[in-house]
Design a protein around this nucleic acid. Structure first.
Lengths: 341, 341
DNA sequence: AAATTTAGTGTTATCGATTGCACTTATTTT
DNA sequence: AAAATAAGTGCAATCGATAACACTAAATTT
C-alpha cells in the first residue's frame, strides 16, 4: 500500500549502493552508462520520486518561498501572487501564502513560521500598522534569506523592493483632473502609516502647486478602503462652504462610494464633478460609469518581485546588494473624469 | 553570521544530550523540571527555533497542504483560498498554491510537484478540460494523502468533495425569473466537461418543466466566462425569431456582458428583460444595475474543505471514508431581475 | 537491608538524499 | 613491464529532530 520508493530500494534491487543510484539519477559524469541506464530503468519501474523534504534538509534549500499579504482575496494582491507563482513555478519554486489581515502580530507570526519552515525567501507587502517588525526582519536578513517588499514597503537596509512610483501616480491623476478643468480637487487618502499613501498624497499636492492651485487641508481626508468610507467622506466634503469639484481617491472602492453618493445627491458626473481612483481594479473598467484609475500593474509587480528574488538567490557571493525597482504607474482615463468628448 | 541554533548546540552548551533537549522542548514528562528550565532558558538565549524540515523528514508530515486552482486571481478562487488559509493556519498548516490555468497537463505537474514536496493533503478544483488525471489521483489516494475537491469535482472513490448544490442554484435562479413573469428564459452555460455547469443546466430545465414551460434548446448556449462572451451570446439570442425575455447565466461576467449589450440594443432591464448570474462576484452588488446572482459561499467552502481535510488527517485508522459536503446556494435578488417594486 | 520500581538521562538508529574520501579495477604512460 | 592515471563504485558522515532502548541512581516496597 505504501508507495514510496527510495534510492535505497532501487539500490537493493540492483545490488548496488544508494550513492551510485543518486549519482545516476542526478546525471553525474562519474558513472558508467550501463549502470545509469539500469538505474533509470528501475527508477521508472518502481515509480521512484525524489523526496524533496530529504533534499531540503540536506541542501538547506526547501525550494519554497513565502508570500505574506494582508488579504489574498483582493484583486491587487491576488494578481501579484499570480505573477509571483507564474514566474517562480518555472524555476521549480513553490509559493506558500500567508495572510496578515493587516495585523502586525499575525504578520510576525507568519514570517516566523515561514522562516522555521526554511523557506528560501520571503516576499511581502507589509501590514497597515506601524509595528516593530524590525527585529524579525533583521533576523531574516542575517539568516541570509532574501527578503523582498512589494508595494507596501519599509525602507530597510538589505531589503529589496518592488513598487510603483506612487508619487507619480498621484501627480498624474491630479494633473489629469486639473486638465479637465477641475479647480477644487479633494483627496481621499489611506493610512498615514503607509508610505504609499503618503507618496500619492505628495504627488497630489505637488500637482496642485505646480499648477498654481491652492492646497487646502480641508480637502484631504483619511479613509479606509471601503465603499462606505467613500460615501461618508464625500458627504462630509460636500457640506463644506466651498465644496470640491473633483476627488482623487487612493482607493477604487472609495472612488466608487463617492460616485454612488454623488448620484444620490443628484450631482452630474463628469460634467460637474470628476472622480479618479487608484488601483485599476477590474470593476473600474466595466461599470456603467467607468472610473478613471491608476494602474499599478500587479501582475508585473509580482513577476518582477519574483525575478528579484531569483537574482538574489543565485548571487554567488554573500554580499547581496538590495535592488530597488520602481515601476511607472499608468492612468487609465475613463468616463468618470472625462468632461471633454 | 549564520544564526541557526540546533538542539545539538544547546546540548553542547549545557553538557547534556540532544535527546534531553528535544524532550525538554517538547514538554515530555520524563524530565526533571530543573533540566527543563535550563534548556528552555538556553533555547531562549540562543534564539533556538525548530527546523520544520528536519521534523518533516522524521515525522513524515510536512505540515504543508497544496491547493490547486485554475487561477488565483479570480474572486471565487481567491476567496476559497482565503477560507482555507484562515482555517488551516490555526492548526499550524501552511498553504502552497498552484495554478493549473485550466490546463490538464499543468494540473498534473502541480499535483506531482506537491506530492514530491510531501504535502500532507491536496485541495483542488479540477481544470476545465476532461483529462486523464485518474492515474495521478489514485496514486495520491494510495499514498494516503487526503485529497479534497471543492466546487469543480470529479466523482472518484476515496475523494472527499465540498460543493454547492448547483442543481438547486440553477433551479432557484430560474424559478425566480419565472416568478417575475418571464416566459422565455435562455441559459448561458459553461463547458460541458464540468459537472457544475451540467448541474446548473439541469436545475434550469427542471424549473422550466415544473412550471409548465417549454424547454427550448435554441435558448441554451455554451460560452466562456467572459464579458465579451456574454455580449456575443445575447446578440445571437436576440436574432432568434422568438427572442428570450430573460437570461440565466452560469457566470457573472457573462451576465454583465448580456446587460451591457441589452443596454446597447435599447432594451429595458428589468422591465422588459431580466438577468440573473451565478457566483455573486462582489461587483454584482455594487453596479449601478446590481445583478441578481447565486451565492456560492466561497469563503465558507474553503473553510469547510479545510475542516474536511483536518478530519481526514486526524482519523486514526487507515480506512478513510470520503465525505461529500453539499452547501446550499443562495440567490441574491437584485435590480437586474426585479420587475416588482 | 535486599529487591524492585521509577525517574531521568544517554546512546544510537532513523527519516532520504548527497558527497568527500577511499578503494578497486582498467587504462594509459613511460 | 612497471608505474601512474583514470574510471567507476562503495563507505560513511551529514543535514536536525525524534524515539526506542539501555542504563544509572534514587525512591519505594517487602
Amino acid at each position: 500500500m505504501n508507495d514510496k520508493t527510495t534510492i535505497y530500494d532501487i539500490a537493493e534491487k540492483l545490488s548496488i549502493s544508494a550513492a551510485t543510484v543518486s549519482r545516476a539519477l542526478n546525471g553525474s559524469t562519474k558513472i558508467s552508462s550501463k549502470t545509469r541506464e539500469l538505474v533509470l530503468q528501475m527508477a521508472e519501474n518502481m515509480n521512484y520520486e525524489q523526496n524533496k523534504v530529504a533534499l531540503a534538509l540536506k541542501s538547506g534549500r526547501s525550494k519554497n518561498v513565502g508570500v505574506i499579504v494582508p488579504h489574498i482575496n483582493r484583486s491587487f494582491f491576488s494578481n501579484v501572487i499570480r505573477g509571483i507563482e507564474e514566474e517562480l513555478s518555472l524555476s521549480g519554486y513553490r509559493v506558500i501564502i500567508c495572510q496578515s489581515y493587516d495585523n502586525a502580530e499575525k504578520e510576525m507570526e507568519s514570517l516566523n513560521a515561514l522562516l522555521n519552515a526554511q523557506v528560501d525567501g520571503v516576499l511581502m507587502s507589509i501590514s497597515d500598522l506601524t509595528s516593530d517588525l524590525d527585529f524579525l526582519l533583521s533576523k531574516t536578513i542575517r539568516k541570509g534569506v532574501p527578503l523582498i517588499f512589494f508595494d507596501r514597503k519599509k525602507d530597510i537596509n538589505g531589503v529589496s523592493t518592488v513598487t510603483i512610483n506612487d508619487f507619480e501616480g498621484g501627480y498624474q491623476a491630479t494633473q489629469h483632473l486639473i486638465n479637465e478643468g477641475c479647480k477644487r480637487i479633494a483627496h481621499l487618502r489611506g493610512a498615514k502609516s503607509l508610505q504609499i499613501y503618503n507618496d500619492r498624497c505628495r504627488g497630489y499636492k505637488q500637482a496642485l502647486i505646480d499648477n498654481g492651485l491652492e492646497v487646502n487641508d480641508e480637502y484631504v481626508l483619511e479613509t479606509k478602503s471601503k465603499i462606505e468610507a467613500g460615501t461618508e467622506a464625500i458627504k462630509q466634503l460636500m457640506k463644506l462652504p466651498n465644496p470640491p469639484d473633483a476627488v482623487f481617491s487612493s482607493s477604487d472602492f472609495v472612488a466608487l462610494g463617492v460616485i454612488k453618493e454623488l448620484k444620490n445627491l443628484g450631482i452630474k458626473i463628469p460634467e460637474n464633478f470628476c472622480v479618479a481612483g487608484f488601483g485599476n481594479d477590474p470593476f473600474t473598467e466595466f461599470m456603467e460609469m467607468p472610473i478613471s484609475s491608476v494602474d499599478q500593474f500587479p501582475l508585473e509587480m509580482g513577476k518582477i518581485a519574483a525575478r528579484v528574488f531569483l537574482e538574489q538567490i543565485d548571487s554567488p557571493g554573500e554580499i547581496k546588494i538590495e535592488k530597488k525597482v520602481v515601476l511607472s504607474p499608468k492612468l487609465h482615463i475613463r468616463k468618470s473624469s472625462s468632461k471633454k468628448p
